[in-house]
Nucleic acid binder design. Structure first.
Lengths: 349, 349
DNA sequence: GGGGTGAATGTAAGCGCTTACATAAAGGCA
DNA sequence: TGCCTTTATGTAAGCGCTTACATTCACCCC
């Protein structure tokens, strides 16, 4: 005997199930299910009856049961390295908006830039039934890739387009972009460069950006190893520390390239605290073009990346894959420089 | 006949299930389940056998099936108004960290400050099996509250502590905090105040902050209605627009209080663009004390709110509730002023 | 008017897990 | 040695849905 029928007079306090609705409406569970999922397959009169019962009972479908039975959740997952700053916010927003138009829900997790944590998150999201995943960058553990392949989970890699990577990706060429930016810096006459980067070991984007800077130096006939490099974790303070440390050298850089805007903002802030004027005393550049870049003083000259475009296109592609469309193609988008105030000609020494 | 056994010679390409593991290890599904969930109830030898099979097969439990069967998901949900700026990032981070120590996963959704959307998100998270929810502020639709009560979902309201609200909440008194800040502004001699706020209709925190400012004015013998008010959506640009608009009046405010730091940062940026010096020409204050407040020039004098503390305490409280502890109590935390540069004495007029 | 057609609905078999209960094995003690 | 615990494992009944297939019924055509 099921205890859920109200024997005590007052309405059962358990959550109503499909079956309750069916009983209440005098139809079978199949009909209720159809009403909810493909209303056109049910005649008007019945549908009204069912919907009325649904409302009456305050019924809400149990997602887990549905996922279990249907093998499809209409849920995508995204794993981004961090939520602490706005780097991925805009892109994710666009991703979500596009998914929304297809009736798909987004679940977001963050990996704190740790491949192992990312691996956990991938498994967690897949275990939760994510139909497809958005991942950032190419670097991740082989286990993660193996898992994805084994489960045949469609995924796309955003924020990075590397010509030589085989995987489906949508983004820009980090290396090329930084090469372009660095060229401009060199054209301003700078020869002693500093580079503040996020840890490169497990971050292909950071690596690409660094290499791009090296490329440009080499092109210009400069020795890339002469560039002062500081690797640090993300954060305003960290960027500031790296900057200060770098500037303490006997012949400090005249221009400091930062792997992203957060680091650059930290450098700018610290420069001010150190009594250095940007860009007169030292030039600083960023990367990503997040809101922060426009707000600090001086505003940061940075590489604008196609946040929203990456998000939107990724969503389109994944939706396509889930609908059995032929495997999409990787897509290269453009990144371009936003000229602002933090980059200037080299100071007369 | 199940098609999943490999009749074609190559290993089955379906995802392995508990049953596969059981068969592989030569035990029952119950034993495998126990191995995974309460290993101490299984003897070492068996456990090893099972774990080996798990590894061999690359088994990962199906979360939905587990949730369906166990009625408990070890997942909490949080619905924040926005992910676009960092207002909730730190608190959420702390919330997540604390949950992590209890083996609980966090699912985050954002409502874009819309009660209806929030209602959807609540239902979605609950349907997904969230054992408990973190909500921001008191304002939400009655349906949402009714739903929560009906389902007996434990929840806590953070970012707001209002003495007269009956619901479990952890946070600070927005009204009182803004009253304190405004008092300080008035003590600097300002009498013509401007107030830029987020839409107050469905946001008790914004309302509270506004009222706090009014309170302080009244205390000071000033007419609260003399305060110029601009209501705008969150955003740097929006804050700037509101500020500019406000300053175009014949007798513009000498101090502009902003409902949060994002708005304040926008105001500061615009002030600079308008050729106004802060705080000499006009004072500006913020609220929240997010990273941004320290970075802009001049740095924003703002109300620091106990982000991490709110997150951590909320987690503790919810975990307690889920473990059947007696209903916790609401908790008031302190917010305090961070003195920086954007507030100064009123300009000699 | 009989048989064929198609639309609307019902029946029931799972989906992959957890867990109450049953059973078996292993000691402990008189 | 026989009986009673205690502990380890197995059995099987769901959890709340979806969906293939079966059934029913109305309608139409020759």
């Amino acid at each position: 005997m099921k205890p859920q029928s109200a024997e005590n007079g007052k309405p059962a306090d358990v959550v109503p199930t499909l079956e309750d609705v069916a009983r209440h409406a005098g139809v079978s569970t199949a009909t209720v299910s159809r009403c909810l999922n493909s209303p056109e397959r049910v005649v008007e009169r019945t549908r009204l009856k069912v919907l009325h019962a649904v409302r009456e009972l305050g019924y809400a479908p149990n997602f887990n049961a549905r996922a279990l039975a249907a093998k499809r959740t209409n849920t995508f997952g995204a794993i981004i390295p961090t939520m602490e700053n706005a780097i991925f916010a805009k892109g994710l927003q666009a991703f979500q908006e596009e998914l929304g138009t297809h009736g798909i829900t987004l679940l977001v997790a963050s990996s704190s830039y740790s491949p192992d944590l990312e691996n956990d998150q991938v498994r967690a999201l897949v275990a939760r039934g994510a139909d497809a995943l958005l991942l950032i960058g190419h670097d991740r553990t082989p286990e993660t890739y193996a898992f994805l392949e084994r489960r045949k989970i469609p995924y796309v890699i955003a924020w990075a387009y590397a010509p030589d990577e085989p995987r489906l990706s949508i983004g820009f060429d980090n290396r090329q972009a930084m090469r372009v930016l660095t060229r401009k810096v060199l054209e301003f006459g700078h020869e002693r460069l500093g580079f503040i980067t996020a840890p490169r070991a497990t971050n292909d984007r950071a690596r690409g950006r660094y290499q791009g800077a090296c490329d440009a130096m080499a092109e210009h006939g400069l020795d890339p190893t002469s560039m002062t490099v500081r690797e640090t974790t993300y954060g305003i303070e960290e960027g500031g520390d790296a900057f200060e440390d770098m500037m303490a050298a006997p012949a400090p850089p005249t221009a400091v390239l930062c792997g992203n805007d957060v680091l650059a903002a930290g450098a700018i802030k610290r420069a001010r605290e150190m009594g250095l004027t940007v860009p007169q005393d030292v030039s600083i550049t960023g990367f990503d073009d997040i809101e922060l870049a426009e707000i600090v003083t001086p505003a940061i000259t940075t590489m604008h990346v196609p946040h929203r475009e990456m998000g939107r296109r990724s969503a389109e592609l994944l939706v396509g894959l889930c609908n059995g469309e032929p495997t999409g193609r990787s897509l290269e988008l453009e990144a371009s420089i936003r000229w602002r105030e933090s980059l200037g000609p080299v100071a007369r020494s």
